Simulated scan of single mutants.
Amino acid sequence: MSQFNIVNSKEGVPGDGTTLPVEFTLQAHPSTDIWSKPPNTQSFTAPILYQSVPLQSFKRARVAFGAQWKHKYDQGGLILVLHNKDGSQKWVKAGIELTHGKPHLSAVAKDNWSDWSLLPVPSGGGAATLEMAREADDSLWIYLVEGVQKSPIREVTWIFQEENVKECWVGVYAARPGTEGDVQMILGQGKVITRTVEIN
Score class of each variant (00 low, 15 high):
residue 3 Q to L: 14
residue 4 F to V: 08
residue 4 F to E: 01
residue 6 I to W: 11
residue 7 V to T: 13
residue 7 V to L: 11
residue 11 E to I: 07
residue 12 G to P: 09
residue 13 V to H: 03
residue 15 G to Q: 10
residue 15 G to E: 12
residue 18 T to G: 04
residue 19 T to H: 11
residue 19 T to Q: 11
residue 24 F to D: 09
residue 24 F to Y: 15
residue 25 T to L: 02
residue 30 P to H: 04
residue 32 T to D: 10
residue 32 T to G: 07
residue 34 I to L: 07
residue 34 I to T: 06
residue 35 W to Q: 01
residue 42 Q to S: 10
residue 44 F to E: 02
residue 57 S to K: 14
residue 57 S to A: 15
residue 60 R to P: 00
residue 61 A to N: 01
residue 62 R to H: 03
residue 67 A to Q: 10
residue 68 Q to S: 15
residue 71 H to S: 13
residue 71 H to C: 10
residue 71 H to M: 09
residue 76 G to D: 05
residue 78 L to T: 00
residue 78 L to E: 01
residue 84 N to A: 13
residue 85 K to N: 15
residue 89 Q to R: 12
residue 89 Q to D: 14
residue 92 V to Y: 02
residue 92 V to H: 02
residue 92 V to L: 05
residue 95 G to Y: 01
residue 97 E to Q: 13
residue 99 T to C: 13
residue 99 T to H: 12
residue 101 G to E: 13
residue 105 L to R: 00
residue 106 S to K: 06
residue 108 V to K: 00
residue 109 A to D: 05
residue 113 W to R: 10
residue 114 S to L: 07
residue 116 W to S: 01
residue 117 S to T: 13
residue 118 L to D: 01
residue 118 L to S: 10
residue 122 P to V: 09
residue 124 G to F: 06
residue 126 G to C: 13
residue 130 L to C: 04
residue 130 L to R: 00
residue 133 A to D: 01
residue 134 R to L: 11
residue 135 E to F: 07
residue 136 A to N: 10
residue 137 D to R: 15
residue 138 D to K: 14
residue 139 S to V: 09
residue 139 S to Q: 15
residue 142 I to D: 00
residue 146 E to Y: 04
residue 146 E to W: 08
residue 148 V to K: 13
residue 149 Q to L: 05
residue 150 K to I: 01
residue 154 R to G: 01
residue 154 R to F: 00
residue 155 E to G: 14
residue 156 V to F: 05
residue 163 E to W: 15
residue 167 E to K: 14
residue 168 C to Q: 09
residue 168 C to F: 09
residue 169 W to M: 02
residue 170 V to M: 08
residue 170 V to T: 03
residue 170 V to C: 09
residue 172 V to N: 00
residue 174 A to Y: 01
residue 175 A to P: 06
residue 179 T to Y: 07
residue 180 E to G: 05
residue 188 G to Q: 12
residue 192 V to K: 14
residue 192 V to M: 15
residue 193 I to R: 05
residue 198 E to W: 07
residue 200 N to A: 14
residue 200 N to L: 14
